[in-house]
């Protein structure tokens, strides 16, 4: 069976959708982080696929930038989560809801 570029693009779109959906329905902060990572890595897959298809190295270079950004984002995000969890252990995203209206 011939696996063409569109397969990879569809797979990336599905992973992205799983990540986006997971972020909306899951309530554990750490799982929500993983969903964000899933979305970013789905985009990386898209970049690499296009890079190969267009025969342009630029897309693969971009992936490195995205990886660095994702790492920085997770560092900050974990810091925020730890700051919240230290006060109230076992918290879920639903419990963080003092601000509304």
């Amino acid at each position: 069976m011939d696996v063409g570029a569109s397969w990879y693009l569809v797979l990336a779109a599905m992973i992205f959708a799983i990540g986006a959906l997971g972020l909306m329905v899951r309530r554990n902060p750490l799982v929500m982080f993983m969903c964000i990572e899933l979305m970013l890595n789905a985009v990386n897959l898209t970049f690499v696929t296009f890079s190969r298809e267009l025969n342009d190295i630029g897309g693969q270079v971009i992936v490195f930038f995205v990886l660095v950004v994702a790492a920085a984002e997770v560092t900050v995000g974990l810091g925020i989560i730890v700051a919240i969890l230290r006060r109230r252990p076992g918290i879920t995203a639903d419990d963080v809801s003092a601000l509304k209206g």
Partner: peptide
């Protein structure tokens, strides 16, 4: 507590939106 909550909400939704922006960039690149 409200400041921590703001940081958490900003982070989750900000990262969410960045991922959409990045996907948009990937499609324009493609």
């Amino acid at each position: 507590a409200s400041s921590r909550e703001a940081a958490m909400k900003y982070f989750v939704l900000g990262a969410f939106s960045s991922a959409f922006l990045l996907y948009g960039i990937a499609l324009v690149y493609g």
